[in-house]
Design a protein around this nucleic acid. Sequence first.
DNA 1: CTCATAATTCGATAATCATCGAAATACAGA
DNA 2: TCTGTATTTCGATGATTATCGAATTATGAG
Lengths: 115, 115
Amino acid sequence: MSPAVEEDLVARYADMFSAMGTAPRLRILRLLLAAHPKGMVVGEIGGELGITASTLSHHLEKLKHEGLVKVRREGTFLWYSANADGLRELLGFLYAECCTRSGAVEPESIGKVCC
Amino acid sequence: MSPAVEEDLVARYADMFSAMGTAPRLRILRLLLAAHPKGMVVGEIGGELGITASTLSHHLEKLKHEGLVKVRREGTFLWYSANADGLRELLGFLYAECCTRSGAVEPESIGKVCC
DNA sequence: CTCATAATTCGATAATCATCGAAATACAGA
DNA sequence: TCTGTATTTCGATGATTATCGAATTATGAG
């Protein structure tokens, strides 16, 4: 991978981490993961977390923009759900940095994976 | 786990993600992981990444405060290194959310772990 | 076409953040 | 103790961010 591309990737992952870097947004993401793959309607998320509509809309926009959630419309409702592809990519990056590339963290300690 | 404690944990993980949520800090962390476990001296980090001393100091303080790096003094030099415990905890959280609790991401897709 | 509901966009504000240069501190050697 | 180097702290500034209520848009039902 060329250095420039790698720099861009790092910047992109930083943005993804930043999107998860506030309690309200991380709670939203957890909620959507718990409701995966169906996801949740905006109003239900707001009701569950006690976030006003406009604030919630901005948070969802940010999460969507960084590829952590996706949205589909169903009539007048918008269903937000976790974006598995984005999360897998980010998790893979963190795993590679911590385990594969540096060996700072032992894979077995992350969670039982197999065997 | 009591709900209050879980909320606190989520807030803490959010702060850790936030610490990784800017390109300069994520680059610092990558650099320290690559130099793990020895770590690097502040001046060397700054030289490598082209960050002024005072800015770098603030970034390192933030990473340290969130438990992502640690520091030891050796004479007049400060050696910063990745904090494996903090990273393992954060990686474990993300893994649990994405793979264990929700099944949104398949463990095998993260990286070759074993078998 | 009008109405009601869902959600976003607008406009604004207070708070946090990233960054810098200059000054201060910490430490080792002479 | 004085000097030089490493690093942090101080003080300040511009930029971004989180948040809110009000206004607007989108959609389907009647």
